[in-house]
Write a protein that binds this DNA or RNA. Sequence first.
DNA 1: CTGAAAGCGCTTACAG
DNA 2: CTGAAAGCGCTTACAG
Lengths: 338, 338
Amino acid sequence: MAVTIKDVAREAGVAVCTVSFAMNGSAHVAEETKKRIFDAIEKLNYRPNQSARGLVTKKTNNIGLVVEETAEGLENTILLDVIKGLGQALGKNNYDLLLSFQKPQSRKLDEHVLDVYRKQSADGLILMGTASSERPYEELVSKRFPFVLLGRPYQEKVCHSVNADNEQGAYDAVQYLVRKGHRRIALITPCSLEVDASLDRYNGYIRAMEELGDGFDESLVAIGSFDPDSGYAETEKLLSLKQRPTAIVAGRDVIASRVIEKAQALGYKIPDDLAVVGFDNTVVSQLARPSITSVELPMRSMGFEAASLLIKLIEGEIRYDDVQTIVLPCAIRERESA
Amino acid sequence: MAVTIKDVAREAGVAVCTVSFAMNGSAHVAEETKKRIFDAIEKLNYRPNQSARGLVTKKTNNIGLVVEETAEGLENTILLDVIKGLGQALGKNNYDLLLSFQKPQSRKLDEHVLDVYRKQSADGLILMGTASSERPYEELVSKRFPFVLLGRPYQEKVCHSVNADNEQGAYDAVQYLVRKGHRRIALITPCSLEVDASLDRYNGYIRAMEELGDGFDESLVAIGSFDPDSGYAETEKLLSLKQRPTAIVAGRDVIASRVIEKAQALGYKIPDDLAVVGFDNTVVSQLARPSITSVELPMRSMGFEAASLLIKLIEGEIRYDDVQTIVLPCAIRERESA
DNA sequence: CTGAAAGCGCTTACAG
DNA sequence: CTGAAAGCGCTTACAG
């Protein structure tokens, strides 16, 4: 049915292997022969069958990305940027992205990750999300199967990983506010501190506050959540402090928008009475009024770096044991709120 | 290196083909033998090599989704919902999603679409986006390669397609406002009318307005754009009409949020002085204050239906020539702005 | 009900 | 520099 390498060989009047050599550059082929071959390929619109190729080369030219059936990992807009970043690196290197979705019945994500490895349908894996499972890594590592953690806890340096520097992002946010003249700076965490990124931001905040010399005042920290209304109550609490903060670092943009609403409702002018810095630089920060100064996570770069690293691992440009831990800086996008 | 069907056969003490028969149910195997085989599979963690399987069955169990290098198609948050919907259907049926990114150099998306077909790395294709190219379809159709258009112009019923009923969505939005007592209802289109979805919404609006009996007043229509500030000027213009509208249907949520801001700045109360209905039901409509009543596009269902349809096509449950045109209804999510 | 064998479309030593 | 042949890991008629 489909055109095969045999058809090309016949059309060009050469042996099958010569076509293969010419296409892959795996042996020298006379210029003239080459031209005949490439003409035949173009004429017939020949593309090597990936399954046949994969069977012998043990390479699929696919990168796997596993997604939970509940799709929690897809919840955030941010994933789109990651995929774009992945795509840039992948397209450049001629890889495709294989998104594997869990079957509704099978509850164990770990097993599913292992399955895409066992089926050999990808040459490497990008593992992203917050879920920190240990088991799949073991089998993957022991079999030296290439994979890169993206935005996950980096397992004591035993796995290649790419992450955003959340700690530095929060630190910079405080520093930015200090430069604007603030000293009483509060933090609302993006969610519980059990989540890695949340803890990192918390730590960055503390480091910056301690450097300020006033010491760390626990009453200036509130724990936010994924509740869409998270930020209202925390703002009210923070602003009713005897020594109220003049600035708030909100762990996520949505929370920042709630902070602004509540503060405005209480009669505060933003940013004059209260400065607000958000996190994630999502569309929310652009649409809010006033627009929100926000710490941008380099999601696109993270995707790009993760895919580039994985490809180097696959192609042997980086040794498997030479564990890479890439941490990318966050940048502050200045807008009206601070 | 990896465990093969031979290993399983040896472990279970049967012939290779018996293992294959047992796994695929393609021939009867005695219960007892079956048990030995499945025990061996479990013990060895055997999973059939996808390339080998694909080579002989001519099936990859992959669905292709082509993405332009510029990733325009990925621009909207909405794609995430589509992917979730695709994933639901795919996971259930044991297919993976192959996202193929264009190489930076190759400028022709059409060729790239054809390449994933020619390489035989997917059993079918989901084509989404607004770009309407004709050429790839021809080759695909003539070779009877399964593909489904998602949110694209549906090419005079020659291609299977899944779409949202934008026309009805706009019609319903007007009807909804009429029920709230409005008659002077304006429309700001989501973008130029060259885009299919935009035109459909425009037509739905017109149909509803004409049914009202007051006839179609062109001055009540403004053409919006993708400019982030689109909506400001249009609102100003519409509200300065001698007979100003009491309600505005905004073609996108972002535009609706601009309408609200501008109207509020001009002293109008929402929804009392001016009712506003948005489109797309994005996070913007939830975060705006007042929150925005919005027409929801069934992106998740569209993804699910598109994948389900494609799988039926692939597996022969639907004849290739029995062209399916699935149009899914939009629903109005009532909030504060109307 | 089970086994031996051919073949899917490639790549890669191995000769010439 | 090019050709004939083996083999990758499966599935599927074909015998028994």
